[in-house]
Design a protein around this nucleic acid. Structure first.
Lengths: 245, 245
DNA sequence: GAGTGGTCTAGACCACCGG
DNA sequence: CGGTGGTCTAGACCACTCG
């Protein structure tokens, strides 16, 4: 019957506990993005469950976006990649259709005291040190986004020894490779404001022009805040789409 | 076996065809929001299917947001209500937490030629007539949104005979009751711009202040465009939140 | 061909809701 | 209490992928 080798709160459904166990495998790094998850039949045997129960557990994680399934190939831990997801919000005049990752250039990298509200978001102590960066992103050589980025210390200490010019267009793979920090998801918040002098200079627009402001908090699989980022882009290039029910 | 009374492309899975059949019941108005859907066992009998197959079909429609299920009570057609969903994007200073529907006041209602790009969105012929409205929405007496609304004719002809002052804070229930037009979902598109003179006056802000612009196209269950709406709100009160993976 | 996920069945028992 | 959805099982057959 409901006899299973699964740990966890016995009041929860078995498929839920299976999902919890597998999610923990990812959170704790035993399963990494791209890895293959044990097959359905393997999980049935290992935990002494019926196929339907195992499938339901797996489907939970698919719905969460953690796993991907491929008929005939297997179940895999999904690689999150959201630089493309951010940039689907922008309409670019030149590159119609194709999603291209804009070029990224780090302009400054310093160590500073983390401002209060960012410290709060990153869940680090008030007044602690962090890495502060300024970055610009370009499409076809034209600036489209100006970014301020904060990373907590000592978690990202290894990032300081990297040559700034060698960092590519995407930061999250670098966080993974150099600092063993995997970004799994993020929350964003949108608003708009007038371009400041500094922002206007970076985006090559007139000060006072409306810009979209996107605050992003990136988190690891376990929910730990890893990076705080504020991006500003020209409103006339910005366009976000949603479907509602 | 796969013998079933279900219509539709036989290459599709049975549960998918069941979902299609039930969705059509809603689209064609035989099942209306709030109605109870036949029970699992009833559907099993009616179509000669196993329980698991029926459940999977129902779960598709739950995932689409069309149905809601309640343990012990039954399965129901969900009532879409998104005036609250729009306003969860806004942060209001006064009313912390609770989601309140802002007061809505129609300032103008006229019949005019539908502008080209709106006609396109509404899928009505270029140059046809439509209802044009101007509406303001207030929270605690303060204007938070200025709206331009277009309705296609003759679909919404009955709307013209309504007393403008008697229309409440929500339009969609009125569309349903008076024009037999049920809004099921909507698409929105966000951007920002400088407040024009007219917008600034309505929102009681300085011209040139950044405002968020939300274009919405509301559709019926069958996908027919029903209403086009452009809302403008003060950027300093606007805040849209998303989670990404 | 061996292994994977996808579909479908038939039936058991449980938990919740309402009258 | 009867009817509803929720969980779980055991097993069949199919469709896809890869070596």
């Amino acid at each position: 019957m409901s006899q299973t080798l699964l740990s966890g709160d016995a009041r929860l459904p078995i498929y839920q506990r299976l999902a919890d166990v597998l999610r923990a495998e990812v959170v704790e790094g035993r399963l990494r993005p791209g890895d293959r998850v044990p097959s359905e039949s393997e999980l049935c045997e290992r935990y002494g469950l019926a196929l339907g129960t195992v499938r339901k557990g797996l489907e939970i994680l698919v719905a969460e976006g953690l796993f991907e399934r491929f008929h005939g190939r297997g179940t895999f831990v999904r690689r999150p990649k959201f630089d493309s997801s951010l940039f689907r919000f922008f309409r670019f005049r030149g590159t119609a259709g194709a999603v291209t990752v804009p070029e990224g250039r780090i302009l400054r990298r310093t160590t500073e005291t983390v401002p209060g509200f960012i410290a709060k978001a990153l869940a680090v102590p008030e007044g602690s040190e962090g890495i502060s960066m300024s970055r610009i992103r370009l499409c076809d050589g034209e600036p489209v986004l100006a970014e301020e980025i904060w990373l907590p210390l000592p978690r990202f200490a290894d990032f300081l020894s990297l040559e700034i010019g060698k960092v590519g267009d995407l930061l999250y793979p670098v966080y993974d490779a150099e600092c063993q920090q995997l970004v799994a998801r993020a929350e964003e918040q949108l608003t708009a404001e007038r371009a400041s002098e500094a922002t206007a200079r970076l985006l090559r627009i007139e000060p006072g022009t409306p810009v979209i402001v996107i605050d992003r908090l990136a988190r690891g699989y376990d929910g730990t805040p890893l990076e705080w980022r504020r991006s500003r882009g020209r409103a006339d290039q910005f366009c976000y789409q949603i479907e509602i029910r």
